[in-house]
Design a protein around this nucleic acid. Structure first.
Lengths: 358, 358
DNA sequence: ATGAAAGCGCTAACAT
DNA sequence: ATGTTAGCGCTTTCAT
């Protein structure tokens, strides 16, 4: 015998109640309320009565029961390393909107940049019978994404990519972004360039670095020096790395921040040392923000099309879920844009080698 | 053994499969895996075997089935007007973390600032059998929050308040924030003050306005003029309202933005007209952002303790859910802080009435 | 055109 | 200490 866990609570109306009130059987009520009235040739009268009673009682079908019976949860999951980050928040929003449009609900989880938590969150969400998952994977180990239960599963990787072949991929062209920033600096005559990197090993970090290095190679210039410092996508890492660079490269003339938090850390150090942009040092960064063009020195940045990233991630997920598309996994690299502002000094030949700041 | 249990259908393992593999009955398996081994005095042997097989098969209990059987979903809902807004994103993150800690999952929904959508999202989430809800309500009509099914329901209102008495309430002291900003301006000698408001009628908007008006009254000054413009918490509304103020008050000397987006719109107009802060006009705003202190004119702002808001919202929700607290609904007004920077000009007696900008 | 009944995966009361 | 079984709320065959 089962207990009644809800004895004290005011029971929500069940299908049974609606059926009883309408004077029909459970099956008729079910058929009417799940839009199968026509298919089952339910009489107009019964149909109307059921609908009226359902409305009157405020009946809402129990989604757990439905999910269990149908083997279909209408649930998707979203896992991001840092939901408070507006980049991820914007993507989550797109996914939430898309989901709502097609009658899905969204389970949100925050991995807090920990691979372990990401992994356990995935199992957690899978036990909720989610039908699809959008994730921005953390770290360098992706074994948890290669799990058997994920192999034939609508999986969308966003921003950061894992080396697995059963997922859709949506990401900005981080490599190109790196190249554009570096080329921009080189064209302006910079020869000693410092980089404030994020978490080493992270896909975005490495791609951006790759792009920077590619630009240096392409330039064919022999006298370019590049120094990379930093260990995380945080303000703290940014300011620490900035100090290290200033220390390590006396002739440093430009800095590339591989993310806004690091740029912020850099700005703090500059402020503290009374360094001014671009007079003393040039600074460019990844990711834009409405405030950036109103900074004391409006930063030249790489803009990602966040909205597009979110839309594409949702589109890929739901078109696979709704069975419109083939099982083929797509890879989308969305373009980035160099937004040139006022943070880069154009150096003369002489200046290229003369600048000394500390 | 040579046979692969998953040769044909890669079905997820059920409790039945685990029980069979371990050579015990369903109930034993269930008891072991839901931590009731001791209570039911399951033998150490059986216990170990069940755990081993569950592990080997990667068994995860079906949460829908559990929820149905237990009448407990372990699900909460979060509804915000704009998830991409970092204020709400930060709160969502806190809730997500708190939920994870106590074994709950979070359903995220974005009302897109529409009361209708908010209302239908609530019904939607309720049909998922959520056990609690955090919502930042949109608009001025709260009938959907007074619904019968929400009356005895762990409900937390965050940031904006609805006039209902069955919900916990967590919000910043918006009124005090308004007062502090206005007093700061008045003390600096400003007598013609413009306000860039958000959506009229919204709780936050009205409270901030109230606070401003209270400061004017308290000052006892007869010669203060206040003009309020704007119709939304957006950049566009901000710049439009800013233009209107400039037009309507020739002697305007200071502007209060009731939100960062409006401040941004204001900055754009200033830039366009070549107006400089605080030389030509003073500007103060609600809400801080790391970039704000590095602006060309670092803005004096009211800081909300977003993290605390999020933590308190979660605490209230889960302490009611976990039954630690009484059914009493609490109201938390969390303090705000005035962060004084460089965006307010101190006016002399003469300047108070002479300034003319257009 | 409608109803009875089986069963989705799980837990717990009721046997042993 | 373990097994058997009813039933959570719903959909859907199968029967009428």
């Amino acid at each position: 015998m089962a207990t009644d866990p809800n004895s004290a609570h005011s029971q929500l109306p069940k299908l049974k109640d609606v059926a009883a009130a309408a004077g029909v059987s459970l099956s008729v009520a079910s058929r009417v309320l799940s839009g199968k009235a026509d298919a089952y040739r339910i009489s107009e009268l019964a149909s109307r009565r059921v609908r009226k009673e359902a409305e009157r009682l405020g009946f809402q079908p129990d989604r757990s029961a439905k999910a269990l019976r149908l083997g279909k949860s209408n649930l998707i999951g979203v896992i991001f390393p840092d939901v408070a980050n507006s980049f991820f928040a914007a993507i989550a929003q797109q996914v939430a909107h898309a989901a709502e449009r097609v009658g899905y609900d969204v389970l949100l989880a925050d991995s807090g940049n920990s691979t372990n938590r990401e992994s356990s969150l995935i199992t957690q969400l899978l036990s909720r019978q989610i039908e699809g998952l959008v994730v921005c994977p953390v770290g360098k180990s992706f074994d948890h994404l290669k799990d058997r239960s994920l192999q034939k599963f609508p999986l969308v990787l966003v921003d950061r990519i894992a080396e697995i072949n059963h997922a859709h991929i949506v990401t900005s062209d981080h490599r190109l972004g790196g190249t554009m920033l570096a080329e921009h600096l080189i064209e302006a005559g910079h020869r000693r360039i410092g980089v404030l990197q994020g978490l080493p090993g992270t896909w975005t970090n490495e791609k951006r670095l790759d792009g920077i290095r590619a630009a240096l190679r392409k330039s064919k210039l022999k006298d370019i020096e590049l120094a990379v410092r930093g260990d995380d996508f945080t303000k703290e890492s940014g300011s620490k790395a900035c100090r290290q660079l200033l220390q390590a490269m006396p002739k440093l003339s430009a800095i590339i921040a591989l993310g806004n938090p690091q740029a912020l850390g850099c700005l703090e150090v500059f402020q503290e040392k009374g360094l001014s942009i671009p007079r003393d040092l040039s600074l460019v960064s990844f990711d834009d923000h409405p405030f950036v063009s109103h900074l004391a020195s409006p930063l030249t940045v790489i803009q990602q099309d966040v909205e597009l990233l979110g839309r594409e991630a949702s589109r890929l997920l739901f078109s696979e879920l709704l069975g419109e598309s083939a099982a083929k996994k797509s890879q989308e690299i969305v373009p980035v844009k160099l937004e040139v502002r006022k943070s880069v000094m154009v150096l003369s030949k002489v200046q290229q080698h003369e600048r000394v700041v500390s």
